[in-house]
C-alpha cells in the first residue's frame, strides 16, 4: 500500500507544474485579451472559444468524425503495408537498399502536396485521395522504425539461438519479433498522430468540403473566429485521442516494460 502512495505522490509531483502552467496560461490569455481589448480576429477569449465548443458541438463532432475516419482508414492501410514492407525488407537485402533511401527522401517531401494528384485519379468527391495521402504519410515512420527493430538483435540472444541450433525463422519468431515491438510502437506513436495531421492538411488541398480542415477555413472566412478556434481545439483533441490510443496499445502489448520517461 505504501508503494501505491509513493507512486501517486510521484504522479502528482510530475503533473502539477504543467497543470499550473496550463491554467495560468489560460487565465493570462483571458485577462490579456480583455484588458488590451484585442479583437477576435487576432486572438479570441478562451471563454468565447469554450462557449462555441458547447454551442456548436454537433457540427464539430460530425466534422471530427469525418476527419477521424479518414485518418483511421489511412492509418490502418499505412500500418499494414508498412509492417509488411519492413518484414520483407528485413529478409531481402535488395528491397531494403531500395526502400530505405526512398524513405529518407520522402521524409523531406511534403507528402500532403500529392493530394491534388489523387483528386484527379479518383473522383474528387471521394474520400479515397485523403485516405491514400494519410496512408503514405503513415507508411514511412512505421516502415523505418519496424525495420530498425527487426534488424537489431542482442548479440547474446543471437548466440543463444545458435547454440539451440534454431532455424532462422524460429529465431525471428522467438527473438526478433518480440524484440522489434518497442521499435514498432515508436513508429506507431508517430504515425497515429501524424495520421490526424495528414488527414486535416490534405483537406486544404481541395476536394470534399467536409471535415475539420474546411470547417476551420470557412469559419475563418466568415470571420467567426471563436468558432474557428473552437474547431481547432477539437482538431487538437482528435490528435490527442489517436496518440493516447497508440500509447495505450503500447502499454497493453508490452506489459513487461517499465513506463518510460517522456524523453526516452
Amino acid at each position: 500500500m505504501r508503494t501505491q502512495a509513493v507512486w501517486a505522490g510521484r504522479i502528482f509531483k510530475g503533473v502539477w507544474p504543467p497543470i499550473i502552467f496550463g491554467v495560468g496560461f489560460l487565465a493570462l490569455w483571458q485577462w490579456f485579451v480583455e484588458v488590451r481589448d484585442i479583437k477576435p480576429f487576432v486572438l479570441p477569449k478562451p471563454s468565447a472559444i469554450f462557449d462555441q465548443l458547447r454551442l456548436q458541438h454537433d457540427t464539430i463532432l460530425t466534422a471530427a468524425r469525418i476527419t477521424g475516419e479518414n485518418a483511421l482508414v489511412g492509418l490502418a492501410l499505412g500500418l499494414v503495408v508498412g509492417v509488411t514492407a519492413a518484414l520483407l525488407a528485413s529478409r531481402v537485402r535488395a528491397l531494403d537498399d531500395m526502400l530505405t533511401p526512398l524513405a529518407a527522401g520522402m521524409a523531406a517531401i511534403p507528402i500532403v502536396a500529392l493530394t491534388p494528384i489523387f483528386n484527379t485519379m479518383f473522383a474528387s468527391t471521394s474520400s479515397t485521395p485523403r485516405r491514400l495521402v494519410v496512408a503514405i504519410y503513415v507508411f514511412f515512420p512505421i516502415f523505418v522504425n519496424t525495420l530498425r527493430g527487426l534488424r537489431q538483435i542482442d548479440p547474446v540472444h543471437a548466440e543463444l539461438m545458435r547454440s539451440y541450433a534454431a532455424s532462422p525463422w524460429t529465431t525471428t519468431k522467438v527473438v526478433r519479433l518480440p524484440g522489434a515491438l518497442p521499435f514498432f510502437f515508436t513508429g506507431l506513436k508517430i504515425a497515429s498522430s501524424g495520421a490526424v495531421i495528414a488527414a486535416i492538411v490534405s483537406e486544404y488541398f481541395g476536394g470534399l468540403q467536409k471535415g475539420l480542415g474546411p470547417a476551420i477555413t470557412s469559419a475563418a472566412a466568415a470571420s467567426a473566429y471563436p468558432r474557428a478556434w473552437a474547431i481547432v481545439t477539437a482538431a487538437i483533441g482528435l490528435g490527442l485521442v489517436f496518440y493516447i490510443a497508440a500509447v495505450l496499445a503500447e502499454r497493453l502489448a508490452m506489459p513487461w516494460q517499465r513506463p518510460q520517461g517522456e524523453l526516452s
Binding site: D154, H157, E159, S163, V174, V175, P178, G179
Partner: peptide, 30 residues
C-alpha cells in the same frame, strides 16, 4: 544439433518479454 550441451554467457541474456519460467522453458519449447 543434438543439443548435447547447455551454455551460459557473461550476460544472462534473458528475454525480457518472457517470465522467468518462460525463459527456462525456451530451449524445451524450441
Amino acid at each position: 544439433l543434438d543439443q548435447d550441451y547447455g551454455i551460459a554467457f557473461q550476460s544472462a541474456g534473458l528475454l525480457e518479454w518472457r517470465t522467468v519460467q518462460g525463459n527456462v522453458e525456451l530451449p524445451l519449447g524450441l
